[in-house]
Write a protein that binds this DNA or RNA. Structure first.
Length: 427
DNA sequence: TCTGGGGTCCTAGGACCC
DNA sequence: TCTGGGGTCCTAGGACCC
């Protein structure tokens, strides 16, 4: 079968968080289900039934309480431990189909389908991927196939919407690309957000097909090189290659809104210490150390009846570090600089930037720390927390009462990662 | 009363240097 | 009225993604 030189499949899980909940509770099939963000704040995943009720993505939960009650919508706090584990299972299944896979987000991956022998059409192949993932993991996916990533995204979107496509759409078939571009609006293209979308509409460019046919200089002027690449992709010329192994992160952030407003400096310090602990684990997992540490504090920006204070401060560490205790020590000093009495704080966070590989850290001849010993302590800490029980070992600065902890009142059990929380089939 | 969290890339402009 | 021309590095802000 003749084949284009580049060929991508985008596999995307349908309503991923909702689907994860459904795998372990079949009674949720065919009824409206939604999943909330951290702190039960916003709606981040909706079943098709909820979408049909007109509830928008990202809406604050309290705004849709009425619809929820009237339609008996099942509501869940997000359970990232469960979703992360399910995600890994989906990707392991996809890896059976090609060695070249780019994990793009928790619920989608690009596959390189070019250059290997199949004894069936691309559509049939896509169907096989879909069926296998469903069978092995319980998660329904959609598959979009095309010559470039941007086109594969468009294919996937249409595959989800069109009942005839039934979850799989191959845009390399004669005439399909043209029709798909005609049917897709510019603001639904991957890489066109609200801003650029509006500017294009103002110029009379409404469909993806019109954008494809735009003059190169015009698009460069409006959207820079990013826009030029995007238009080329729409024309079928690959500009966005598959990223097989993700490069290490250049910065690591950990932040949370509090379950309730906080006024006490000590409590802020404990929360910040907990965020340091989370971020430092990520740092060590990618074998990086940080040169800069930023802490930020915020009041509730939605409360215009309350005084507002948002501020951030950064320290440069004398020696780049990945040591939780040391980072906590600096973070505490920053909080002392930053904190002002008399505000109701709603959120805090830490950012680590200027990351360097830990084995290339420039040491300081006046550095008194025994870094070799410290790193062994951290290794032991990570081992216990990852192998035995998350949070089993903590640094005391994180506090034990944690009144700032976020709300998650509707969380389901960790069916797949905790022995105590396995599904009980006899119940 | 209740409003998520974590990233990336690109560009423009300033500081600084020769 | 004239007031170089490049180059690099850094930062802030914009725009986008899931």
């Amino acid at each position: 079968m003749p084949q284009p030189e580049s060929l991508f499949a985008l596999v995307d899980c349908n309503n991923f968080y909702v689907s994860c909940e459904r795998v372990f509770n079949p009674q949720l099939e065919n009824v409206p289900v939604m999943v909330l963000s951290n702190n039960d704040g916003c709606i981040v995943a909706r079943s098709n039934e909820v979408k049909a009720l007109g509830v928008p993505m990202g809406e604050p939960f309290f705004k849709s309480k009425e619809i929820v009650e009237k339609n008996n919508v099942r509501v869940f706090s997000s359970n990232y431990t469960l979703y992360g584990d399910m995600s890994a299972r989906v990707f392991a299944t996809l890896a059976q189909f090609t060695p070249e896979i780019e994990i793009y987000s928790i619920d989608e991956a690009f596959l390189n389908l070019s250059g290997f022998d199949r004894h069936c059409s691309l559509t049939e192949y896509g169907r096989r991927i879909r069926q296998t993932v469903k069978q092995w993991t319980g998660i329904p996916v959609s598959v979009g196939i095309a010559e470039t990533k941007v086109l594969a995204k468009i294919a996937n979107r249409l595959a989800k919407r069109s009942p005839r496509a039934d979850g799989v759409l191959d845009l390399t078939r004669p005439g399909y690309r043209e029709k798909a571009l005609e049917k897709t609006n510019v603001w639904d293209i991957w890489g066109i957000g609200r801003r650029h979308g509006q500017r294009l509409i103002d110029k009379g460019i409404i469909t993806a097909r019109q954008l494809r046919d735009i003059d190169d200089n015009a698009i460069r002027k409006q959207m820079g090189v990013v826009g030029v690449r995007l238009v080329y992709e729409l024309r079928g010329t690959t500009c966005l290659p598959l990223e097989l192994c993700p490069p290490p992160k250049k910065g690591i952030t950990s932040s949370r809104s509090f379950g309730r407003a906080i006024t006490d400096k000590q409590e802020i310090k404990e929360a910040v210490a907990a965020y340091i602990s989370t971020a430092a684990v990520k740092l060590r997992n990618q074998h990086s150390s940080t040169r800069y540490l930023t802490v930020f504090l915020m009041t509730n920006r939605f409360r215009d009846d309350e005084p507002q204070y948002n501020n951030a401060a950064t320290v440069e560490l004398p020696v780049a570090s990945d040591n939780t205790e040391e980072l906590m020590h600096y973070a505490e000093q920053v909080v002392d600089r930053l904190f002002k009495q008399g505000y109701r704080y709603k959120k805090a966070g830490v950012m680590m930037t200027g990351l360097v590989p830990t084995d290339q850290v420039q040491t300081d001849i006046f550095d008194g720390a025994d870094r070799n010993h410290d790193s062994k302590v951290m290794q032991a800490l990570d081992l216990v927390n990852s192998q035995i029980k998350k949070g089993a070992l903590q640094i005391a600065a994180q506090g034990s009462t944690q009144p700032w902890r976020m709300k998650c009142e509707k969380r389901t059990p960790n069916y797949t990662t905790s022995w105590k929380e396995l599904v009980n089939v006899r119940a």
